[in-house]
Simulated assay, not measured.
Amino acid sequence: MDEANLPELPEEIYPLILCCLPVKSLIRFTCVSKSFHSLILSDPKFAKSQFQAARDRKSLTRRLLCAPPKAESIDLETPAFGNSSSAVTKLKVPFEDVHLLGSCNGIVLVVLDNYIFYMWNPSTGFWKKLPDREGASPSDNRLYSGFGYLPAMDDYRVFASYFDYTPDDDEIEVGTVFSSRANTWETFEYDELAVASYEGVLVNETLHWHTYYHEIVAFDLAQQQDYKMRKTLLPKYLYDKGDDIQLSGGERLHVVRVATQMTPCIDVWVMTEYGSWTKLFNLKFSGPPKERWRHTSCSVWVMETSTVFSIFTGDRDELVMIIFPENGHVDEQQDSKMFSCLKQEEIHSSGTANLYTHQMTGP
């Protein structure tokens, strides 16, 4: 059949075809026509269908977003990771200095000047400014925060904690909650918490932080008005002097201990239910020199089959992905295939980092 005589597809067929494509292809196809551009970048129904299709096919890809001073996205699943800088994509950001506060559903929460919040989709370049809190100013002392999504209500929510003062000039800790559905902030008071982590880890619509008292505090984003924090204990025998404790999310909550004083290693526990922990694995770094594995202040991300973290290698940092071995023991010399390193000179961002899914959704 001659190409000029090919029958045209009904308009309703195009979204069904396009929602089966990966994000990279969809971004390219925004240049095909105005209708494609509008459908792919501006239609929330299409974005949800594309996300659901990708999740059903288990084809959602994860990237690591780093900023500031420059915003860069690192593809953690490309074969190029560890071999060249092609795993790193530079992103355009309309601001000089942004700080990452969390990610959910492909959307990243960023803050400017400690009080101006934006939702950002790094995959599409979409930005949305949140309304300012009442009385917000650059002098606000933000303590910790978090970000999540409630699918049943189609509502993105932001939690941020600040120091405030009573009429008697007493210092108190207040929590603020933003709802994208209501487009408003609510403020509530609660007892001061000695939270050690700044960014909340999202699991099952609940944000988690660890404290200096070997506890985890949790905030359920689905709460309405009568806001409360709940607490649970960290695994026993977790702390040794000099060890670094971090939380990591996913389908379940993980606690990561990076031990550096004796035998360098990473221990990971998974929460099976609140207050109940199971040790998931232990990664021992036996490749010489042992001082190679001195951990930096970067975060650790635990995923289904690998973990990503930063190490100090003599005179520079490297971003490292380790594929989980079946026996839980990592030896750099014996099994170098477990290691994929992206040298720090290939990454031009030295600030915070967030793991996010590469998808079309928007707030």
Score class of each variant (00 low, 15 high):
Ala4Cys: 11
Asn5Phe: 06
Glu8Met: 05
Pro10Gln: 06
Tyr14Gln: 02
Cys20Glu: 13
Cys20Asn: 12
Lys24Thr: 03
Lys24Val: 00
Cys31Asp: 07
Val32Asp: 10
Val32Ala: 10
Ser35Trp: 13
Leu39Tyr: 03
Pro44Asn: 10
Lys45Pro: 02
Phe46Gln: 11
Phe51His: 13
Arg55Gln: 13
Asp56Leu: 10
Arg57Lys: 14
Cys66Gly: 02
Pro69Trp: 14
Pro69His: 11
Lys70Ser: 13
Thr78Asp: 00
Thr78Tyr: 00
Ser86Gln: 09
Ser86Gly: 04
Ala87Phe: 07
Val88Phe: 06
Leu91Trp: 05
Leu91Glu: 13
Phe95Tyr: 15
Glu96Asn: 15
Glu96Gln: 14
Leu101Phe: 07
Ser103Pro: 00
Cys104Arg: 01
Cys104His: 06
Gly106Phe: 04
Val110Lys: 02
Val111Tyr: 05
Trp120Val: 07
Ser123Cys: 14
Phe126Met: 07
Phe126Pro: 02
Glu134Ala: 11
Asp140Tyr: 14
Asp140Phe: 13
Asn141Ile: 14
Leu143His: 07
Ser145Ala: 15
Tyr149Phe: 15
Tyr149Cys: 04
Ala152Phe: 08
Tyr156Asp: 02
Arg157Lys: 15
Ala160Thr: 15
Ala160Asp: 15
Ala160Met: 11
Pro167Arg: 07
Pro167Lys: 07
Ser179Trp: 04
Asn183Glu: 15
Trp185Ala: 01
Glu186Ile: 06
Phe188Val: 05
Phe188Met: 06
Tyr190Met: 05
Tyr190Gln: 07
Glu192Arg: 03
Ala194Asp: 09
Val195Trp: 03
Tyr198Lys: 05
Glu199Pro: 02
Val203Ala: 00
Glu205Asn: 13
Thr206Ser: 10
Trp209Ile: 08
Thr211Lys: 07
Glu215Thr: 11
Ile216Asp: 01
Leu221Gly: 02
Leu221His: 04
Ala222Thr: 14
Met229Thr: 11
Leu234Ile: 01
Pro235Trp: 07
Lys236His: 14
Asp240Val: 12
Asp240Leu: 12
Lys241Asn: 11
Asp243Leu: 09
Asp244Ser: 13
Ile245Gly: 00
Gly249Pro: 07
Arg252Asn: 15
His254Gly: 05
His254Leu: 08
Arg257Asn: 13
Gln261Ser: 14
Gln261His: 11
Met262Phe: 09
Pro264Arg: 05
Val270Gln: 12
Met271Thr: 02
Met271Lys: 00
Tyr274Gln: 12
Gly275Glu: 02
Ser276Glu: 14
Phe281Cys: 14
Asn282Phe: 01
Leu283Pro: 03
Gly287Glu: 06
Pro289Val: 10
Arg292Met: 10
Arg292Val: 08
Trp293Cys: 00
Thr296Tyr: 11
Val302Pro: 00
Met303Gly: 04
Ser310Gly: 09
Thr313Met: 10
Arg316Ile: 09
Leu319Val: 09
Val320Arg: 04
Ile322Met: 03
Ile323Tyr: 08
Ile323Gly: 07
Glu326Ala: 11
Asp331Arg: 12
Gln333Ala: 12
Ser336Asp: 15
Lys337Arg: 14
Lys343Glu: 15
Glu345Ser: 10
Glu345Cys: 10
Glu346Pro: 03
His348Tyr: 09
His348Asp: 03
Ser349Glu: 06
Ser349Pro: 04
Ser350Ile: 06
Thr352Tyr: 03
Thr352Met: 03
Ala353Trp: 08
Ala353Thr: 14
Leu355Ile: 11
Leu355Gln: 01
Thr357Asn: 12
